[in-house]
Write a protein that binds this DNA or RNA. Sequence first.
DNA 1: GGAGCCATGTAACATGTTACATGATTAT
DNA 2: ATAATCATGTAACATGTTACATGGCTCC
Lengths: 179, 179
Amino acid sequence: MRTLKYALLGLINRQSMSGYDITREFNNNKLANFWHAKHSQVYPELNRLTEEGLITCELVNLTDKFEKKMYTITDAGKKEFAAWLSEDEPLAPTPKDVFRLRMYFCENMTPQELSQHLDNAVLQHEKSLAKLMHIMSDTYGNVPPEICTQAYGDYMVLEGAILREKSYLEWLHKCLDRM
Amino acid sequence: MRTLKYALLGLINRQSMSGYDITREFNNNKLANFWHAKHSQVYPELNRLTEEGLITCELVNLTDKFEKKMYTITDAGKKEFAAWLSEDEPLAPTPKDVFRLRMYFCENMTPQELSQHLDNAVLQHEKSLAKLMHIMSDTYGNVPPEICTQAYGDYMVLEGAILREKSYLEWLHKCLDRM
DNA sequence: GGAGCCATGTAACATGTTACATGATTAT
DNA sequence: ATAATCATGTAACATGTTACATGGCTCC
């Protein structure tokens, strides 16, 4: 389905970006809550999109010797991206989760081991939730931006990530309550 | 990390199984709520585990001409599986989600298009939730089995899947309420 | 001068999907 | 007979990770 392709087109559609900028978005920013890619995957894909005429590349001189490659979306790129956005795709298969896999095999654990795993997961997800909620209140003060804006996209997925973490914690606590 | 390896070892540890049986677990049964694999991935991995001495293979004749391969875990396999089970792994990166990616780019949608996407997702997740809750009440009558049993592992991940779907729906409804 | 970040790329490997291939059994 | 399911495999391809490789800039 080449989802990475559309992630890149969507980002470059927001504004011209370099491969490094895109990688940073994937690893540090809001996108990390539902998509990610390493630079080793991003750079080849940018070259491919350029060959396909969906983006163009411009060399920008930062200093005499030091350049960066800024990518801009083309009309063809905008068209393909818009077509993908409007697609009505089927429900994705449930995401893989190694922790759930371990829990599934709890018949091989003592109650002590089981609750230790659960406790550890609680700590990890509480930390992750706290971080997300901090970003939320810092950025939006919990007030949603106007719908169908760039900020609203950011807000929606952040809200979704918070609910996801809360739900994971709810599950872990239900399991712990039965111990 | 070779997670598939441990998924297979865990299943074969429960009882001797064929590659076909395992594939069926992955695609039809409770495992589908957090792990899955196609037969084209399962069969080579079974051969690899056999070579590594973690499982053994026995040909069982169903009829004169028709055989199936039943795999059984070895002591070495049990040991490796137990070691993996007790590992305390770091928080996994958030799972990729194409729907959230689309929502992230909502600045390119009209409110009509956005709410249409949300409505469609609601239908899909409601269907999925209904199915899970049906399995839950049918199998357990909502009464959790004794902890650290095979049935309890099944129950835990099913409960987790239900909470996950409920949380996804809560997010979608929050988004729709703002439209 | 060294640490950390900016910036771009490739190679080898691991994982996962789709398609190709075959053949028996069971229920209608 | 024919469709669905049981049963096992391989080949080609797509996706994603880790490691290798290079070099400049900025702050301390």
